[in-house]
Structures are given as C-alpha cells and as structure tokens.
Design a protein around this nucleic acid. Sequence first.
DNA 1: GTGATTGTTCAATTTAAATTGAACTAAGTG
DNA 2: CACTTAGTTCAATTTAAATTGAACAATCAC
Lengths: 166, 166
Amino acid sequence: MLGETTEEIGLSEFEALVIDFFCDGVRILGLPKSIGEIYGLLYVSQEALSLDDLVRRLGISKGSASQGLKTLRELGAVRESEVGEGRRSYYEPDVELKQLVGGFIKEQVRPHLASGEGKLENLKQMVAKMPGDARADFYAGRLARLGRWSKRAKILLPLVQKFLGR
Amino acid sequence: MLGETTEEIGLSEFEALVIDFFCDGVRILGLPKSIGEIYGLLYVSQEALSLDDLVRRLGISKGSASQGLKTLRELGAVRESEVGEGRRSYYEPDVELKQLVGGFIKEQVRPHLASGEGKLENLKQMVAKMPGDARADFYAGRLARLGRWSKRAKILLPLVQKFLGR
DNA sequence: GTGATTGTTCAATTTAAATTGAACTAAGTG
DNA sequence: CACTTAGTTCAATTTAAATTGAACAATCAC
C-alpha cells in the first residue's frame, strides 16, 4: 500500500482563491476561517475528500478538521459520500443554496431568536411588577416593539427559505 | 456648576438585562459587545444621552464609546438629538427595524457581496484561460452556481427591506 | 489477543479582535 | 490669549476565539 496514487499536496492558485472566497463568506456569518477552508476545498474538488486529505492539503491540524467537519455536518453543508470503499469516510459539499441557508437558519439563527424571546418574556414580567408610572409605560412600549421585531423575523425566515428554494 | 442634577450611575437590574439582550443581538451580527451595550442603554433610556453618560453608566472607556457611537451612526442606528442645549452632543436610538436592517445591509452586507462578486469575476477569467478539459468544465459549473447565489442574494435583500418596512 | 488506522476530545497555545488610556485636535469661554 | 470641556485617534494591552497537538476511544486486520 505504498505510493498508491499521486497524492496532491498543497493547493493550486485557483483552489487557493476559491477557498479564500469561502473564508470571506463564512466570516460574515461569524464562523471560523477553518470552516470556510474546509467547505471551500470540498466545493472546488471533483472527488469526495477524507479528513486526512483536508489535513494534508490545507495544512491544518486533525483537531481543526474534525471539529470543522462536525460543524459543517450539523449545518447540513457537508455529507458523507456513499462511494468511499474502506473504513475511511469521504465528504462532499451540499451545493444547494436552499439547504445551506436552511441549515444556517435552523442551527444558528433560530436558537438565538428563541433565547431572545425568553429574555423578552422575563423583561415583560419585570415591567408588569413595576409601579404603573410613566417610566413603566415607556418600558412597556419599548418591549412591545422588540416583540414585534421578533414576530416579524419569525415570519420572514420561512419566506426567505421559500424564495431561495426556487 | 457643581452637583447640578442627580447623576445616575451604574445600571438598574432591568436596564442591565435589556442591555444584555442587545449584546446577544449584535453578537449574531458580528459586531462588538460595546456596540450592543451602547445601543441597549440608549434604547432603554427615555432621554438622549451624551458620550459621557455612556462612559459613566456603562463603565466603558471614552475611546470605546466614541468608536461605538461612530459605528452606530454609520449604521444609522443612532442619531444626534436636536434638543441638547450646550456644545455637548446627545444621542438617541433609531428604533425602526426597517432602518436598522437597512443600515446593516448597506454598510455590512452589500460591501461584502460586492467584493465577493469581484473575486468571482477573477476566478471566471482564470477558468477561461485553462485548457478546455473536464476539470475546467467542472470549475466553470461551480463558479456559475456561485454567480447564481450572488444574484439571488441581490434580489432578496430589497425584498427583505420591503417586507420589514410594513 | 496485538498492532495499525481513523477519528474525537479537550487543555494548552496561538491568533485575532476589542478595549483601554494617554496624547491629541477642535471648539468654547472669559 | 490661556484655560476648560468635548471628542477622536491609535499604539499598547486585555480579552475572547480559534487552532493545535497529544492523549484517548473505536474499529478493523491479522
């Protein structure tokens, strides 16, 4: 099993630029650069890649690659390929924008929205217990507005997903 | 001019929780916590506040407050109040979701989209210069897909703004 | 079973980002 | 003008986040 195939190491200029493109992309979403590198290399590769391929070609640690792949799988941005023969897993990207955005909304956006709504509920209860003066009225008004923001976001998200679906 | 008005220092529990709410919010958007603190305190205050008020009540440095206010003004999330008498400036929040999202899209999202389109253009030119083999076809296909993503985003953003406008 | 291969976890380290604080500009006051 | 007050800038520091790498499971091969 020595020297089986020509093992590509390093990255072509083209590959490096595609990867850089995705690093910028994930940066906006608040995800670590390594996620962009991994997804980028998968996106620009014709064949599915193993964890070891990612480590070798990107020059990142096994820990980073493992952790990054885990996040990408949770987001639904990457899936295990069926083809790989041995015990080793190979990964390929999901390239459907709809899926990518859907996964991001489900994993990153909705949890934050939900926790925000919880906090808002607490705040409303605090105001309900305050003396009914002008200050409490002001607070109630501001909280009501936040509630409307949150409600709108919850209507908007499915619409966005629908729009991206076709 | 000593001891003019009862100068509130520190934060009530309610104020602290509202500020915390906004810190979470800006975190998702990839903005620093101090931005959330400043906007949060303005949001929960009935009167416009000066830079010095922010420094004192939030316990942050003048530098942070100045820089944070600058960013918030650029985003259109905060404006100078008309009322302030002396030479000092007072600030109040813009509480219209439409404006806030609009400012964020204009300042944070569009510039990234534009730079991404530039990079994509470069990549397409590189592929055009490659030998016309299967690999180049694969690359061309992937880049075309990225182009569609970007096009969709550009259609979607104004729709989102419109939706939030009413 | 032993030894090799694949992948995960997490404490220690590195890297990147935010914050401070002192020096500075600008504008107001007497 | 000299003196105070308001606000900005930016190098140095602090803080938070990402990455590493070594130890640890899990799975296969023999």
